[in-house]
Write a protein that binds this DNA or RNA. Structure first.
Length: 986
RNA sequence: GGGCCCGUAGCUUAGCAUGGUUAGAGCGCUCGGCUGAUAACCGGGAGGUCCUGGGUUCAAAUCCCAGCGGGCCCA
């Protein structure tokens, strides 16, 4: 046994452990140990490979790591491959910044697609490396050398293979759709990319009037996007609303009656008169004159469409109830337009500028067209009011440009047709906590088709090829098929850089085929991870053995993202769900419960925390702070508290290893089994508590209630081990060598620590390893704590009755302390007698524990009474609580005083020994100067003094007689001065 | 606007599925103790409208309804 070093400084200790793991190849050995066990496929949700890790990603990986380590110790053959999401717009935007590019034109003209993609790849791989190191520093054990990357050919082929299944089932369709579009990034954005990107902005608030045809008056419309008016094709009213003809200043306006008071106020109408009312549906078909016919000549072709139509989406809360409808520029406009056969006229290009079709506005950026349109309306007398309004408007999640809505042709996965199967198969998934299922189902019910195509560069190329001659399309499902189609034989990287130059030969007409230039939405990449990461379909062996994955865990935002996307792809490819069990975890917030953001300056860097407090402390804190599925409010005070708990554990460890090595205790020579007859009640209690701890920790990890496991460990260390057991056995460690009582205490303490370490190993892997290294005396034991098995509870050591008794003993000890405090009786001073009146049956429960209690109470005699019995007369300090009474005798006999005095002196001499820097076993000579009466009182306890302070050569004398050779100090004890001298011997 | 989750001492939280002690801890505060586990540690005490308002019940932190505040997601 090695005595542990006095202090434990987690950051340095952890670095040492990590280096040692590295040198000894411990991780590899742990993986090897798992082989042959039952396969357990854990799937890592791939974090985005850009930037560095934050507290949320750290939590995510720490949670995974604890479970991975636990399953491994349970003997499972755990797959623990990390994954990285490598494609997508965020990386493109950062690379654009790095290269000083501003638009797609810049990319294509200035650096070229090939170099741009190379830079993106470099960026991604750079960050994979960076983030890998950061995760490693937190003690996360995964196959860092063999991650799955969404940018490899193999992975891309898996995506193509999956798309081919969709294509075969007719679930992949090209469709004209109005979608969010970023004019800077020049790409479509999916719904989930727009989430949370609504900001307050000031926009025009424009009221315009459209002249009615075939009757007097105007339609009054309102818009915040005047630039969309050139594409206006209809005006929409709600069929069930009442519309009013309102006369103002000699003109008649048509608008919803319910909106009239508000509109009148906004337009400053003082005097107006309702001259007629009509139901919305009766307005259908009413024709009007487009306000910008001269400016936008194309509009003349649409003159037949310029009518009032009906739609349920019209609301009274804003606008006039007459909704300007531009099917090419608005999602709802488009949908209602489809019903009326309106074309999706969209005279704006990908860069947000008007095309030739925009007539007078051609070349203008949409926002620049706003004032131009306003002026044109004013010139024609069609402007009613041009003001501004502050409202919430969507922006690009990467570059923060305000988005526009544009009708474009995109490729969709028809999720709508998969929904029934999705919902049915989802029943097989176990959701933790269970209410996430409801959330998931709601998400599926409300979701639309999945827009898969992106008009960008850094992504998995859409493997769809179209013949320029006959229009035939082919979906290429693998590299092999690509070679067959294009005749390409050389090395290929399956990104746009290589693919864009290829041409195919049409199997139908022999014409030239070109690939649709789009790339895929990155969420499609990660949605196939459960098989793509196994090398499927190129390799089938792993897939057949492992798929579907047994367990995944990610943040709650992934419910409608990764959890959802995975099910879609999997159900479409295999008709099955890709995972069996999902644990959803919360978000990392600051101590006030606010989101962490750079602008608030409240971002916590987990790597920094680990560097300062230690990764284990961070891990234990995060895991114990709250249930995984609730948000973590990161609280530095609580973090430090965990740090202190770790320190207490270390102190216990120092205590144990110091004394055990001093006594050359060897658990092999003194196994617990042989010492069973010598166990005292506190020993049997400790053994029982360990079983309870094993049970709690196991249940917590099995049920996803990781916090319960972590809390059980911490509370065991503080409450049971440190504050109770170690304190109780301390006197026993001072008795002579080889005494069975001492050996029993050692054996129990060793057992408790050994079990505790194994339970602790997944949570605090470095600390457990360090402690294990000190405790491991048997070279035949595995070299690392992580090579041990998870302990199982030993029922024969469990004694619930004893645990109850000990709980009572603890409560009584606290009461005794209270009674002593009331009478000013220090705990160190023994008292003659403690009398305890108990409740029914409790005395029975405490039978056999009298000696233990006397030790805890520090009393010479103990009297346990039943409920009806009275405390005998005498001088006592008493406390009553919970139907019990504790009485502590106050009288101090000379005998007791001597003992107390001896203890006081021992304590002070120990301090002096320490001041002299003496080792625990070194012998000393002592001279103790005091009054004659004190010397007489002390007489019977000199042997005790010699033993405790390791004195050889003790002299009692008067204070003045104490010599000067040695370490001398004066002490005040109970109002009297003592002069003590210690001298090193020999 | 909709769905789901959370709201308990100054702070972090247990208890809530199955209603029934005086709502239990830790931090902080305060008073005291300990000093061969000591850059620690231990004990006592003060501190609570259990978010608000209704309802069910003999009884509500716990169940139901409405509202308020926060989070995630969807519109």
């Amino acid at each position: 046994m090695k005595p542990a070093s006095k202090f434990y400084r987690p950051p340095e200790a952890e670095k040492r452990v990590q280096r040692w793991w590295e040198e000894k190849g411990i991780y590899r050995k742990v993986r090897e140990k798992g082989r042959g066990g039952k396969p357990w496929y854990f799937l890592d949700g791939p974090p985005y490979a850009s930037g560095s890790i934050h507290l949320g990603t750290a939590w995510n990986k720490i949670l995974k790591d604890v479970l991975l380590r636990y399953w491994t110790m349970r003997g499972l053959d755990v797959r623990r491959q990390p994954g990285w999401d490598c494609h997508g717009l965020p990386i493109e935007v950062m690379v654009e910044e790095r290269l000083g590019l501003r638009s797609k034109k810049d990319i294509e003209r200035e650096v070229g697609v090939e170099r741009f993609i190379e830079e993106c790849r470099r960026w991604a791989l750079e960050h994979v490396r960076l983030m890998t190191d950061q995760f490693k520093s937190l003690g996360v054990w995964m196959d860092w050398e063999e991650p799955y990357l969404t940018l490899t050919n193999e992975y891309i082929e898996a995506a193509w293979w999956t798309l081919k299944r969709a294509h075969e089932k007719g679930l992949l369709r090209k469709d004209l759709r109005v979608i969010h579009w970023c004019p800077r990034c020049e790409t479509a954005l999916a719904e989930h990319e727009v989430r949370g990107e609504y900001y307050e902005v000031r926009d025009p608030s424009l009221y315009a009037r459209f002249r009615l045809k075939g009757e007097e008056g105007y339609l009054l419309i309102w818009t915040t996007t005047p630039w969309t008016l050139p594409a206006n094709l209809a005006v929409c009213v709600h069929p069930d609303l009442t519309y009013a003809r309102v006369e103002v200043g000699g003109e008649v306006y048509l608008l919803a009656e319910g909106a009239l008071p508000r509109v009148a106020k906004e337009l400053g109408w003082r005097e107006y008169r309702v001259v007629g009312r009509v139901e919305g549906r009766r307005l259908e078909g009413l024709r009007y004159e487009h306000p910008l016919l001269e400016e936008v000549p194309r509009q003349r072709e649409f003159a037949e469409h310029h009518r009032v139509i009906c739609g349920e989406h019209v609301v009274l809360e804003e606008g006039t109830g007459c909704v300007h409808t531009a099917p090419g520029f608005g999602e709802e406009d488009f949908l209602v337009g489809e019903r009326y056969g309106l074309p999706a006229f969209s005279p704006v290009g990908p860069d947000g500028r008007f095309t030739e079709e925009g007539g007078k506005y051609a070349g203008l950026f949409v926002k620049e067209a706003d004032p131009a349109v306003l002026e044109d309306l004013r010139g024609k007398g069609l402007l009613v009011k041009g003001g501004t309004v502050v409202h919430s408007y969507p922006h690009c999640w990467r570059c923060k440009t305000p988005l526009i809505f544009r009708a474009t042709e995109q490729w969709f996965l028809r999720v709508s047709e998969l929904k029934p199967l999705l919902l049915e198969k989802n029943r097989e998934v176990e959701w933790i906590p269970s209410w996430v299922r409801e959330r998931y189902v709601n998400g599926v019910l409300s979701v639309g088709d999945w827009c898969l195509s992106r008009q960008r560069y850094w992504g998995i190329p859409l493997p769809l090829w179209v013949c320029g001659s006959c229009g035939r399309s082919e979906l290429v499902g693998s590299l092999e098929e690509l070679r067959a189609l294009t005749g390409e034989k050389g090395e290929l990287d399956l990104h746009r850089s290589d693919l864009d130059r290829l041409r195919g030969r049409c199997p139908g007409c022999g014409g030239e085929m070109r690939r649709v230039p789009d790339v895929l939405d990155v969420w499609f990449d990660s949605s196939i991870a459960s098989w793509a990461s196994l090398g499927f379909p190129q390799r089938r062996e792993l897939f057949e053995r492992l798929w579907p994955s047994a367990f995944i865990t990610e943040g709650e935002d992934q419910v409608t993202k990764w959890f959802y996307a995975q099910q879609v792809s999997s159900v479409l490819a295999f008709g099955k769900v890709p995972y069996r069990r999902v644990l959803t975890h919360g978000f990392a917030l600051d101590a006030q419960g606010r989101k962490m953001s750079k602008s608030l300056g409240n971002v916590i860097d987990p790597v920094e925390v680990a560097r300062e407090h230690g990764a284990d402390v961070l891990r234990l804190y995060i895991l114990s702070a709250n249930p995984p599925w609730e948000d973590l409010k990161f609280n530095p005070t609580e973090l430090r508290r965990v740090g202190r708990a770790v320190n207490v554990l270390w102190n216990v460890h120092v205590f144990a290893t110091t004394y055990m090595s001093l006594d050359s205790f060897d658990p092999r020579r003194h196994p617990l089994e042989g010492l069973l007859p010598h166990l005292l009640p506190e020993d049997r209690w400790m053994l029982s508590r360990v079983q309870g701890l094993v049970e709690e920790a196991t249940a917590g990890l099995e049920g996803g209630e990781v916090h319960r496991a972590a809390r059980a460990l911490l509370s065991f260390v503080l409450e049971d081990l440190s504050r109770w057991y170690v304190r109780a056995i301390r006197p026993r460690t001072w008795v002579e060598k080889e005494h069975p009582s001492k050996l029993a205490a050692y054996a129990v303490l060793y057992y408790a620590l050994e079990r505790l370490l194994r339970l602790l190993a997944p949570f605090a892997p470095h600390l457990a390893e360090t402690m294990y290294a000190d405790l491991r005396v048997d070279p035949s034991l595995p070299e690392s704590v992580h090579l041990l098995d998870w302990p199982l509870p030993e029922d024969r050591l469990r004694d619930m009755r004893l645990e109850r008794a000990m709980e009572l003993a603890r409560a009584l000890t606290e009461r005794v302390a209270e009674a002593r405090q009331g009478a000013g009786l220090k705990l160190r001073w023994p008292v003659e007698e403690v009398v305890v009146r108990l409740q029914e049956g409790e005395a029975e429960l405490l039978r056999g524990m009298e000696d233990f209690l006397k030790g805890r109470f520090n009393c010479k005699r103990l009297l346990l009474l039943g409920p009806g019995e009275e405390v005998p007369p005498g001088e006592y300090s008493t406390v009553e609580a919970e139907g019990r009474k504790v009485a502590v005798s106050r009288a101090l006999s000379p005998e007791l005083r001597g003992e107390a005095l001896a203890r006081e002196l021992v304590r002070r001499l120990q301090v002096m020994r320490k001041e002299m820097g003496l080792g625990m076993e070194e012998r000393v000579e002592a001279e103790l100067g005091m009054g004659e009466e004190d010397a007489r009182t002390l007489e019977p306890h000199l042997e005790y003094l010699r033993r405790e302070v390791r004195i050889e050569g003790l002299r009692l004398c008067r204070r003045e007689e104490v010599g000067k050779e040695g370490h001398v100090r004066d002490w005040e004890v109970e109002g009297e001065t003592f002069r003590l001298l210690l001298r090193r011997r020999g």
